[in-house]
Design a protein around this nucleic acid. Sequence first.
DNA 1: ACAAATTATACGATTTTCGTTATTTTATAC
DNA 2: GTATAAAATAACGAAAATCGTATAATTTGT
Lengths: 204, 204
Amino acid sequence: MGETHLDNKKYQDLMNTARELIFKHGTKRVTIEEICEKADVSKMTFYKFFRNKNELATRVLSELNDRILKEQDDIMNRPIPFIEKIKGIINHLIKTSEELEDIFLDEMWEYSEDFMLFFNTLKKESYHLISDFIKQGQQEGVIRKTLKPEVILYLIEKFQEMLNSDRMKAIAPDPHERLDLMLNLTFYGIIDSKQQTGTAQQGE
Amino acid sequence: MGETHLDNKKYQDLMNTARELIFKHGTKRVTIEEICEKADVSKMTFYKFFRNKNELATRVLSELNDRILKEQDDIMNRPIPFIEKIKGIINHLIKTSEELEDIFLDEMWEYSEDFMLFFNTLKKESYHLISDFIKQGQQEGVIRKTLKPEVILYLIEKFQEMLNSDRMKAIAPDPHERLDLMLNLTFYGIIDSKQQTGTAQQGE
DNA sequence: ACAAATTATACGATTTTCGTTATTTTATAC
DNA sequence: GTATAAAATAACGAAAATCGTATAATTTGT
């Protein structure tokens, strides 16, 4: 009742073209009428589903939020060794933050406080998800039990910063090499003694 | 004098950021004040150099026009076999038209007639350049003398159409393979009997 | 210290965008 | 067919953004 929006054709059309245009140009540069025109939906029907452009953009971001969290969850539930999951998560975090950077690079920031809210929500939910994940890793004996999940989460957060820092770029200009270096560094600090598998190997 | 604009720092700053923003979002989406702010130039100085946004955009396009023609000319004057030059020109045409497509994909079209003028100018100048180039090729005996330059120009124009046609994509999904195929086809129709060099080779 | 160039600010005029209204068209069920 | 719901169209005033300009203050170069 009332929420039959989600499976409505016109609603989906609007969301899809909105996502496309907003991701490309930012919310401010795109007009409602432009979205309607491209989605082949009249302005009237637009206002049936959304109060204004802000609400539309917020829902687009909300969908993005769900997608990202689902992807994280999927990685965590893959039938692969725990270490591989960690790598998967880190790679996904990097990929995600790059994507988000593209979207928010422009003026989306200052456009509305809703977007700040979006980030806080995403961070918080992602935080819980990964926190549980780490505890699981500790139970499996892959991650040192003496480390608090909060510390590891902080480490992951800093990981991205370091990866894109000028310092690291100077040390390893090639992105792949840099990533490998950082993964290596992180793993040999986190992972229990002789658990090291294939990809992240030291010098030699 | 009075055209001392070109070497003016502020002028260049405006042109550079304008190029960047306009190429990314299209003229309509970008505001004068935005360009000024990013270029770190006051609005007043903007109006010292440009009458309005249209004039700015036109000059940006004009610069682009010059760049493209110069690149064409450079390719033609490389110390390489004539056939290689042709390949270079065709590659450049493809690259260029893709770049222009990106720029004009949005609403730049309908924004002003100046942009139509830009295209016509570019086409005309490019036409002359390539026409002379072909005549030179005929004198060198690389291109069959019985072919009129106009015919070859038309062929080149169609070349791009064909390259991106669904028909050709079905035949050769891989872009590189498709390009090679088309080059091959074109050359063996155009080039004098046994002149074929390395890259464009038939079947075998 | 002077002159020239650039900026900052403010402003009215114009244009764009918004959100709503009344009306017509289209699709769907009866 | 007709009735009913959903959507499209056109028009509109209100609000906001953008434009282009005028003025005074500031910075820059000499």
